[in-house]
Design a binder for these strands. Structure first.
Lengths: 190, 190, 190, 190
DNA sequence: TATGAATGAGTGTTCATTCAT
DNA sequence: CATGAATGAACACTCATTCAT
């Protein structure tokens, strides 16, 4: 049955793509991505029909990885603040541990090469997360707004916090903490 | 290069660039920008030495326009909350009124073609704004954090709010209001 | 290479090649030919060392099939006109019955990928045919010309006739008849 | 008004294309065509939007040149045979004098990259020619067939004759003469 | 100064062929 | 022997920039 498509190689391409896109944007040459993955230029196209296909699948893979990080260890029975805290910490820790992936995700998010369908699927994973905690927003500012909004508040504040953490690595913990306070106040204050 | 003959033409190119970059990203061809400005392909390069130069100057021009919008009508003697409110409203109104410019700014911000120097100069304008209100943060969460941070909280929440406003135009006022509440709580809660 | 295991598979590849070349020209991908033959991409190369080898062998196979059609039922003892008529009818009938093969042959004939050697061998088969009837040209226009020429007159008129037949299927018989008259006059008139 | 598009350069590209296509077929690289024309690779695309566009326009240019050759010196008032003779001689002389153009035309004719529209336009020129002599076919074999057919008989016999002339340059005149006899008999015999 | 044709390096993608399975 | 993944040289076409007009 000849050589089977190697999951390993596919991952190497996605990993390389994340790095290269983080560094050079979505217009980075596929040749560079292939090189970074240690495969031939043509091989990339046996795993991804098109550059756009690669970018969209990278987007989904990153979203999925992040989602997995948020869910891991989620304290289902904790107090709402603790649960949000867990999500916040997971998000920020993942972002701090994977700066390239985070930057790539940002590039992809603003790119018009990510299809609406991908965006929908990519967001879908987080509906789970949103659902998990919807009830925790029964009070406070978020009362009357779609759960999307609360989630988006978290996301944008976490991104911003990560930016500061990256700029001043010595102050990481402080920013992580302050960011959460800001978020929690934003979302829960009466 | 001295002073180019026509300020008007320079502006036309910048305006076209904002539209085209908003629609197609920073990799949009200069030919399209020139066409949109009603000038010849080559003319663009008598006003901007390089595509990168154009993008950087567009970035600065947009930052400056936004800054001007924030300062206009600023109630220097008002209560802190009112002053922040003015900044918030100005930001969000400008963004809602100039969706292409905002989208272009977003594209430019994540692009690696904007030099660190441009980013610094672009931020500098806001130091004024920051300075104007530094004192207002003498209490609350922001107490012990750099004024940048408070500013960044505002910016990221405003951007996110604009996204929601664009998606559901019927709910504009509601999001604008809710966004400000979230921001104000984030930043001022004890 | 010895004798490849399956004559059947070799034929399937040649048949597929004829169809694909007819439809897409000699630049058709080998992958498509393999697929059409129901074999793997690589298998094609165990039967034909090279794409050029495949094309050349296809050319020869088609020439041979056509030659066989001309010889079948040849009335060795008939009057010259009847013999030519048999050849003409056989040629045209074969072409009408195998439009893809005929189109493929045409593509191959003008292609620079068919080697001079193949052309020579491909023509050789017809020397038999030519020889069979050489004597029939002892008079008429062809008197002083190489038998090739008479043969070529037939071939080119037959090809042209097939074109018209393909274009207007309702008039097939008429064209077939008129084509032969033209040929016969061309070749036999005093 | 900047540099105007140069008719000269366009012609150089078409001429180079004819040579390169004659030698290598329609799949010849555009780079080679550009090089042959003494222009940069990119320049080719300011004159022809697409390789297909170039091939189609080359086809039309060649058809037109041939048509012009046939019409030049046409003896409108001559006897039918003399008029056909003129057409035959013009065709064959043009083909013998421009072997590359002829070979290119042949390649283009069998290629599927020539659009039906181009074929129609390319044929259109010859309707003139056909019309010029339609009446001359009031008798003979062609009596009851479309004028296309007579024209096609001429074309295919002329092409074949050119082939023989190219193969044996010493016998040119003989083939030219014999070819015409064959054609004339084919078409006019009772 | 304004124009837009000219340039050629760079891009995504294809494809004949090889070779690990 | 059969398979199809792997390879990398081409290829058509784009685009920032230059420069003749």
């Amino acid at each position: 049955m000849a050589r089977p498509l190697s999951e390993e190689k596919r991952d190497a391409i996605l990993t390389s793509a994340a790095e290269v896109v983080a560094a050079q944007g979505v217009s980075a040459p596929t040749a560079g991505i292939a090189k970074g993955a240690g495969v031939a230029e043509g091989t990339l196209f046996t795993y991804f029909t098109t550059k756009d296909a690669l970018l969209n699948q990278l987007y989904l893979a990153l979203k999925d990885e992040l989602r997995a990080a948020l869910v891991r260890g989620y304290p289902s029975r904790g107090a709402p603040r603790d649960r949000w805290r867990h999500v916040w910490d997971s998000y920020v820790d993942w972002g701090a541990a994977n700066p390239a992936k985070r930057k790539a995700m940002r590039q992809l998010t603003v790119s018009d090469r990510i299809s609406p369908r991908s965006r929908e699927i990519g967001g879908r994973g987080f509906d789970e997360v949103a659902a998990l905690m919807e009830e925790s927003l029964a009070s406070g500012v978020m009362k009357t707004l779609p759960p999307d909004f609360g989630q988006a508040v978290m996301e944008s504040l976490a991104e911003m916090t990560l930016e500061f953490m990256a700029r001043e690595p010595g102050e990481r913990e402080r920013y992580k903490q302050a960011g959460f306070e800001a978020f929690w106040n934003a979302v829960s204050a009466p």
